[in-house]
C-alpha cells in the first residue's frame, strides 16, 4: 500500500528576540541590503530614468500658399523669379516672370488629414531662354496634437542646377520633421509659429534665401523636404514653358519627446521591482538559514504549540 501526498500546507515558525540583540542588528542589515542595492544596480546598469521616448503621429500640414521661385535662364547669370510676396515682385523689376501655378492638397485615406500636395508650375520662357537651375521655396503650417500641441510654420526648399538646360523638373518627396531636441510631453509648443519669410518687409534682405535658410536652420524644430530622386528632364524647351511638378507627401512621423513624471516613475518602478524580487528571494534564503540553524540566538515558537503565554 503506497502512500501519496493528499495535501500540504506551509507551517509558520516564529522567531522572537528582543530589540538590542545581534538578531535585530542582522535583520536591519538584511533589510538594508535587500531594498537599497536593487536601486543601485538598476541605476548603474543605465537607463533607469527614462529621458526620451517616441510616439507616432501624422501631422496636420497645410500648404500656406506662399511660394518663392528663382530660375536661372542662362549661363551668364540671367534669372527670372516670382513669388507670392508683392514687395519682392515689385523689387524684381524686369526679372519678374509670372508663371501659371496650380495647387491641390488631397486627403488620400479620408482620415481628415491631408496627405499629398501636388504643386504644378509652368514658367513661360522667351525664345532665347533656357532653364539651368531652379530654386523653389514653399511654406507650410505644421501641427501636432498627440502629446504636446505643436504649432509651427515651416518650409520646404528645392534646389537643383544642371549644366544642361531642362524642359521639366519632377520632384516627389516627403516633408520630414527634424528635431534637435525632444518635445515636451504636454502643453503648447508654439515658439516657431512665426513666419518663415516676412512678407510685409519691403527690404531685399528679407527675401535673401541665405538669410531665410540661416534663420530657419537655427531652429530646433524644422521640416525638410527629403527628395532623394529629383528628375531633371533634359531637353530644349524652345517656346514651350518650363514645367515644375512637385509632389510632397505628409507622412507619419516618429516624434521624440521627454516623458513626464509618472511615465518616468513607471519605468523606473518596473526596473526596480524586477531586481528587487531576486534580492528578496536571496535574502529570504539567507534569513531562513540563519534562524533555522540558530546562528543567532532567537526564541523559536514552533507550529502547533497552542496558546503560548
Amino acid at each position: 500500500m503506497a502512500f501519496y501526498e493528499v495535501y500540504s500546507h506551509p507551517a509558520v515558525i516564529r522567531y522572537k528576540t528582543s530589540v538590542c540583540t545581534k538578531a535585530t542588528l542582522f535583520l536591519v542589515v538584511v533589510l538594508c541590503l535587500t531594498y537599497i542595492p536593487p536601486l543601485l544596480v538598476a541605476y548603474r546598469s543605465q537607463g533607469f530614468w527614462l529621458k526620451r521616448s517616441t510616439y507616432e503621429e501624422q501631422p496636420v500640414v497645410r500648404f500656406q500658399y506662399q511660394t518663392l521661385m528663382v530660375a536661372a535662364t542662362g549661363t551668364q547669370g540671367d534669372y527670372v523669379a516670382w513669388s507670392t510676396f508683392p514687395h519682392l515682385n515689385n523689387m524684381l523689376g524686369p526679372n519678374l516672370r509670372i508663371p501659371a501655378v496650380s495647387v491641390k492638397e488631397e486627403d488620400l485615406n479620408k482620415d481628415g488629414k491631408l496627405d499629398l500636395l501636388t504643386f504644378q508650375l509652368q514658367l513661360p520662357l522667351k525664345n532665347n531662354e533656357q532653364v539651368y537651375s531652379v530654386q523653389l521655396l514653399l511654406t507650410f503650417s505644421y501641427q501636432l496634437f498627440r502629446m504636446s500641441t505643436v504649432v509651427m510654420q515651416s518650409l520646404a526648399f528645392v534646389q537643383l542646377a544642371s549644366p544642361v538646360p531642362g524642359a521639366k523638373l519632377f520632384i516627389s518627396g516627403d516633408l520630414r520633421l527634424q528635431q534637435r531636441t525632444p518635445l515636451p510631453h504636454r502643453g503648447l509648443y508654439n515658439i516657431y509659429n512665426v513666419s518663415v519669410i516676412d512678407g510685409s518687409s519691403p527690404f531685399a534682405s528679407a527675401y535673401d534665401l541665405e538669410n531665410i535658410v540661416r534663420s530657419y536652420q537655427a531652429r530646433n524644430l524644422t521640416t525638410v523636404l527629403s527628395c532623394p530622386m529629383p528628375v531633371w528632364t533634359v531637353g530644349p524647351a524652345a517656346g514651350s514653358p518650363f514645367e515644375l511638378n512637385v509632389e510632397i507627401r505628409y507622412p507619419v512621423e516618429v516624434i521624440t519627446y521627454r516623458p513626464g513624471f509618472w511615465e518616468t516613475i513607471k519605468f523606473a518602478w518596473i526596473q526596480y521591482v524586477s531586481i528587487l524580487l531576486i534580492f528578496i528571494w536571496v535574502f529570504e534564503r539567507v534569513q531562513r538559514f540563519v534562524f533555522q540553524n540558530q546562528v543567532l540566538t532567537t526564541v523559536s515558537i514552533p507550529v502547533g504549540k497552542p496558546h503560548l503565554s
Binding site: 528663382v70 519682392l88 523689387m91 523689376g93 527690404f203 534682405s205 535673401d208 534665401l209
Partner: peptide
C-alpha cells in the same frame, strides 16, 4: 541697392533708418 534672392543688384530695396547696411 542690395543683393536680393540672387547676387544681382536689386535697385528697389529701401534703406531702413538706423540699420547699417553693407551690401
Amino acid at each position: 541697392p542690395a543683393a536680393g534672392i540672387t547676387a544681382a543688384c536689386v535697385d528697389k530695396s529701401p534703406a531702413a533708418f538706423l540699420k547699417d547696411q553693407q551690401s
